[in-house]
């Protein structure tokens, strides 16, 4: 192995990658996530969010309390599609109003 310091194991993002991204001027954690891909793999940031957030605080001088995590997206644990596809979901979202947009859609849906 080549001596890399791995920050995000899922996406093979290195410490050097994060530092390079900061040097390019990307300072918001959402931007660092998008530029490097950290936190977008199978663990969804459970192993790497803390370390990148702390690096951001340390390297940019922003107070840790001013650093927010990137948006947490469901599902928090991965789910096979078949468990979501069963009956029983018909009534989940009931919000309708006169302003519904069905008629706005073209032939393709």
């Amino acid at each position: 192995m080549s001596g890399k310091v791995i920050v995000c194991r899922c996406e093979d993002v290195t410490l050097h990658d994060v530092e390079h991204t900061l040097a390019r001027g990307y300072r918001d954690i959402e931007e660092v996530k998008r530029y490097t891909g950290f936190g977008t793999g199978p663990c969804q940031g459970k192993e790497c969010l803390r370390v990148v957030a702390c690096l951001l605080a340390e390297r940019t001088g922003v107070a840790p309390s001013a650093i927010a995590p990137f948006t947490t997206r469901p599902p928090i644990a991965s789910v096979p599609l078949r468990l979501l596809a069963g009956p029983g979901a018909e009534d989940l979202t009931s919000a309708r109003d006169d302003d519904a947009t069905d008629e706005d859609h073209g032939m393709a849906g």
């Binding site: 890399k4 310091v5 791995i6 192993e47 370390v51």
Partner: peptide, 13 residues
Amino acid sequence: GYDQNALFEDNDR
């Protein structure tokens, strides 16, 4: 809590 790794060379070995 989630277990966290430390930053060192080849820390994912």
